[in-house]
Nucleic acid binder design. Sequence first.
DNA 1: CCCTCGATCAC
DNA 2: CCTCATATCGAGGG
Length: 362
Amino acid sequence: MTRVVGHFDLDYFYAQVEQIEDPTLRGLPVIVCVYSGRTEDSGVVSTANYAARDLGVKSGIPITVAKNRLKGVEAKFIPMHREKYEAYSERIMLLVRERTDMLEQTGIDEAFFDITSRSGGSFERAKEIGLEIKRQVLQQERLTCSIGLAPNMIVAKLASDYQKPDGLTVVVPEQVKGFMAPMPVDKLYGIGSKSSALMRELGVTTIADLAKADLTLLEGPFGRRLALQLHDAANGTDEQPVVERGEATQLSRIITLKKDSRVVEEILEQLTPAIEDLHKRVIEKRLFFRSISIIGILPNLSVRSRTKTLEKPTAEMSAVRDNGISLLSSLLAETGEIRRVGIKVADLTEASEQSSLADFLR
DNA sequence: CCCTCGATCAC
DNA sequence: CCTCATATCGAGGG
């Protein structure tokens, strides 16, 4: 039962959008930033185009560090415009969805898809579909993307990353083992810095190492489930189906405080707009929530949280705010000063389900 | 089984 | 110098 699975990834997405909307940016390093508002240049780089990457500027580094690396270079630092990117994303995902059998969006700029059926299981035809998607995205939105085609999601993801930007990489079943083998384990979806360090301690550095590793050896550090999943992935036998993502089950907002604080009133003053925005999103999406959390990030960047689960789902602002306040006091008593604070609602259900249930119980 | 919390991942 | 948002898992307590 060999499938044809794809991974679709928009190239340096935010920076590319800014660049096509402002032709004067063309050819220059473009750096899209998340400004935290604490000081003039506090914050991190969200996305950098390739001209910037060539000069050592990449996602996640502090804006100040990026500016230092680009000293004496003409470069454009742009604050991110999330809603604009979301509009692009929605149109593009719709386009990709129409040309695939099943789409699983995993981020604003990427998605897995299955085209087993419409390719008839042929990677030749799959490649044509991939090229057609690339053409359409370029024609409709003027954006380039990279696509990977493979027999499963794990390999498709590696393939889309293999040639970037504007790439299309096809890995047919016979090539899977050889394609993956030399790659470092942390290229695998699900293996980040922590797991990578654990792997290194086990003497596992490449995907080939992981593929031939003793499963029982992996179970200690990773747990039975994950160990098997990773081992299978490395062997090219990932069976996870591409499935449509349902609605989000949690919504959150997090902010950086002007200065570290342990005073409820002071923190609340800055958190209130975030709470209001979060609640607005809940209402817009016609959702009910059953749990509320406060998240605190300490000056040392460690994370603490407090959660309150309600008897029954609600959409009340007061439920967010009042519980948020008491959770915040409780959290501060443990942490002392915090650097950032977040609010989250979870256990989301659709309002329609709530009303019909209420009708049913009546 | 439910709830809470921290850890991890990846965007 | 250190953003923001979501999902998932395991542990621990009840």
